[in-house]
Computed example of a mutant assay.
Amino acid sequence: MIKHLLFIVLLIGGIYYYWDTRPVEHGPGVVAPETPVQEATYNADTFAYKGFKITPKATINLEARVLSIKNYYFDKYADLIPTDVVVGWGPMSDERNLSSLLVRQSDRSFYWEMAAPPLEKQQMWQHASNMHLIGSTKAVRDKINDLREGHIIHIEGYLVNATSPKDGWTLKSSMRRDDIGKSSSELVWIKSLTIL
Rank of each mutant, 00 (worst) to 15 (best):
I69L: 05
N61S: 11
Q122I: 00
L98K: 08
D107W: 08
K76T: 07
K53H: 13
D75R: 06
M92W: 03
P56G: 12
L102M: 08
F52W: 02
S109K: 14
L80D: 06
S93C: 03
M124W: 03
V66F: 00
P82H: 12
R65W: 00
T59H: 05
L98A: 07
G51Q: 12
F52D: 07
D94M: 08
F47V: 10
E120S: 09
S93I: 03
P117L: 03
L119D: 07
V66R: 04
I81S: 11
L62T: 09
P91G: 04
L119N: 06
A115K: 15
V103C: 01
K70N: 11
Y73I: 14
D79W: 05
P56S: 13
L80M: 15
Q105D: 01
P118E: 06
S100A: 14
K70G: 00
L101W: 02
N97T: 10
F52M: 13
T59Q: 07
M92L: 12
P82D: 12
R108H: 10
M114L: 12
P56R: 14
A58L: 02
S68T: 08
H127N: 15
D45C: 05
Q123C: 05
V103E: 06
A116V: 09
S93G: 02
A58G: 09
L119K: 10
A64I: 06
P118M: 07
D84E: 10
S106T: 10
W125N: 13
I69G: 00
A78M: 04
K121E: 11
K70M: 11
Q126K: 15
L133R: 08
N61V: 01
A64F: 02
E120H: 09
L119I: 05
F47W: 08
A128T: 12
V66C: 02
F52Q: 13
Q123A: 15
T59D: 04
M131Q: 14
K50M: 10
E120R: 14
W89H: 09
A115T: 15
L62V: 06
Q105C: 04
M114R: 12
Q123R: 15
L133K: 08
K50D: 11
V86R: 07
P82Q: 15
V87N: 01
